[in-house]
Amino acid sequence: MKMEFTKMHALGNDYIVINEFDGEKVKEEEKSYFAKKICRRGFSVGADGVIFVQKPTSDEYDVRFRIFNSDGSEAEMCGNGIRCFSKYVYERIMKKNPLNVETKGGLRVSEMEIEGDEVKKIKVYMGVPKFKLKDIPMVVDGYSEDDEFLNGELELKNPYLPKVKLSVVNVGNPHAVIFVEDNGIDLDFVRKHLDVIGKEIEHHKAFPERINVHFVKVLNPNEIRIITWERGAGYTTACGTGTTASVIIAHKLGKTGNKVLAHLDGGDLEIEIKDDGVYMIGDAVIVYDAKLINIGW
């Protein structure tokens, strides 16, 4: 197998980008298995996921974004991934700004800050959040599919945190947001037990399609700090949709204002909530171009 690809990252969230705009490089039925193989660190290229750049399915979009996690599952959307994608498309495929992007989670619009021909920052319209349980999806006793779950309690089975207060929202993909101060824990506790607690919540029976999990500390009305456990990837240094979700929930619960700077292990993201929806602002980096000779294992 010989295939050209580009390695990119946004806040340390790293991706293998494959250009299928002019034709298929990986067969549709093999994409999941391919992602699982090529993302394995130490054995192959290694990444949090694989992004495919494709032609859109209708004229209302400029380009189609698809992303597969390191476990082979296809995600609806990815905030850090779409910034990498947008930079790649502008610099390598089409000089279109703003860019109307087709995702499994719906339309996303990327506006790019350009210097010369290089994309320096990307502002992404993340759409309008959904809170109803049917949109997550989430199934929990005592709640209907049209209810919201805000700072509700779930029972857990791990020995470190027997129950957790969390809120859920869909911003193109589903997220559970946990404020450490509402659960009597701190971020050091989260780091120590993330592999256990994050994984349990991701796979909790309340979430039939699993869920992304974020532990948030509110620093002040304009700043938060986040530790992320991503569905299908585990711990990551940052999550763009997760940051968006965290700010949306913090604002909805009255913990922050509508414009928030979020600190993640990989760096910072700006999120702004407006009347028409939510916007995410951050950068992305092209690390190298390469040719895959052998998937490695």
Rank of each mutant, 00 (worst) to 15 (best):
Asp71Gln: 01
Gly257Phe: 14
Tyr160Trp: 14
Val26Glu: 08
Asp265Thr: 00
Asn80Trp: 13
Glu113Ser: 09
Ala10Glu: 07
Asp48Arg: 14
Ser110Cys: 14
Leu107Gly: 08
Asp141Leu: 03
Ile227Gln: 04
Asp276Thr: 08
Val196Gly: 05
Val139Pro: 02
Phe149Pro: 06
Glu111Ser: 12
Phe149Lys: 10
Ala250Pro: 05
Val45Met: 10
Trp229Val: 14
Phe131Val: 05
Glu60Gly: 04
Glu76Gly: 03
Val216Glu: 06
Asn173Gln: 06
Lys87Tyr: 06
Leu261Ala: 07
Tyr88Ser: 03
Val285Asp: 03
Glu76Tyr: 10
Val140Trp: 00
Thr256Glu: 12
Gly296Cys: 07
Lys87Val: 04
His214Val: 09
Phe68Asn: 00
Leu292Pro: 05
Arg64Phe: 15
Lys55Cys: 13
Lys192Trp: 01
Leu161Gln: 05
Thr256Ser: 09
Pro98Val: 14
Val260Asn: 00
Arg92Tyr: 06
Asn80Arg: 06
Phe189Tyr: 11
Tyr90Cys: 10
Glu76Lys: 06
Ser86Gly: 05
Phe207Gly: 03
Ala290Lys: 05
Val180Leu: 11
Tyr125Asn: 09
Ile93Asp: 13
Thr236Ile: 04
Leu264Ile: 06
Pro221Ile: 09
Val278Ile: 13
Ile227Pro: 00
Gly257Asn: 09
Leu150Pro: 06
Leu261Asn: 08
Ile16Thr: 09
His263Leu: 11
Asn183Gln: 11
Ile16Met: 03
Pro129Lys: 06
Asp268Val: 14
Lys130Val: 01
Ser73Asn: 08
Phe149Leu: 12
Ser167Ala: 10
Glu153Val: 15
Thr241Ser: 10
Asp182Pro: 03
Val213Ala: 02
Gly240Lys: 07
Asp135Phe: 12
